[in-house]
């Protein structure tokens, strides 16, 4: 029997999907990865319910109530939780709104924006409520590993995932560590 594959889940919270694009940038290495892991909930699958996973990779920080909920669910179901990319690590570009009051941000976009027709602040109950500030993941749950970059390169993700899956100590080469 083939030994069971490791289960990995991924998600994008307050991110731009750039880190997931970098993951796809693994190109043919994805085949090698697919031999060893099975994807659970992820934007790359259609699984809606998160199962018990060995590894969770999270892109993006936390900007609304739904992000908090998803993040806590990932923490509860993933043995190892990894923050990937600048936004997950320090809030990144979305956290630049922390310089302003939330009310001012909303009014600037939805009431005072250029070319608006029927200006109003969206308040449909389906839309998750925004938090006053954007936060990095480690301010909400315990994070086991951090991988910086905006986004981290596919090479950095490859090094990281390989070292992690084979139980080696994590050590990225100099050129694979950057904050931008």
């Amino acid at each position: 029997m083939i030994e069971s594959k490791l289960k990995i889940a991924t998600c994008s919270l307050a991110g731009c999907f750039g880190c997931h694009m970098s993951l796809l940038d693994l190109d043919e290495r994805l085949f090698e990865l697919a031999e060893r892991v099975e994807l659970d909930r992820s934007p790359l699958t259609d699984i809606k319910e998160l199962g018990e996973c060995d590894l969770g990779l999270i892109e993006g920080g936390v900007c609304n109530a739904e992000n908090v909920h998803v993040l806590m669910e990932f923490r509860a179901r993933c043995k190892i939780l990894v923050a990937i990319g600048a936004c997950a690590l320090n809030g990144g570009v979305p956290a630049m709104r922390n310089q302003y009051d939330l009310k001012d941000c909303l009014e600037e976009s939805y009431l005072r924006g250029i070319g608006l027709v029927n200006p109003q602040i969206p308040n449909d109950p389906e839309i998750p409520l925004l938090l006053n500030q954007v936060h990095p993941l480690h301010e909400v749950v315990k994070i086991d590993y951090f991988l910086p970059g905006c986004p981290p390169s596919a090479d950095a993700i490859w090094t990281f995932v390989n070292q992690l899956l084979s139980g080696q100590p994590l050590a990225l080469p100099y050129t694979q560590i950057h904050y931008d």
Binding site: A86, N90, G92, V93, A95, M96, N98, Q99, C150, Y174, I177, H178, Y179, D180
Partner: peptide
Amino acid sequence: NHVCPACEKSGACQLQAVAY
């Protein structure tokens, strides 16, 4: 507030380089 991806000095910043 260090948003390196939005900073012109990124890559040639001493703070960042020392952190690396």
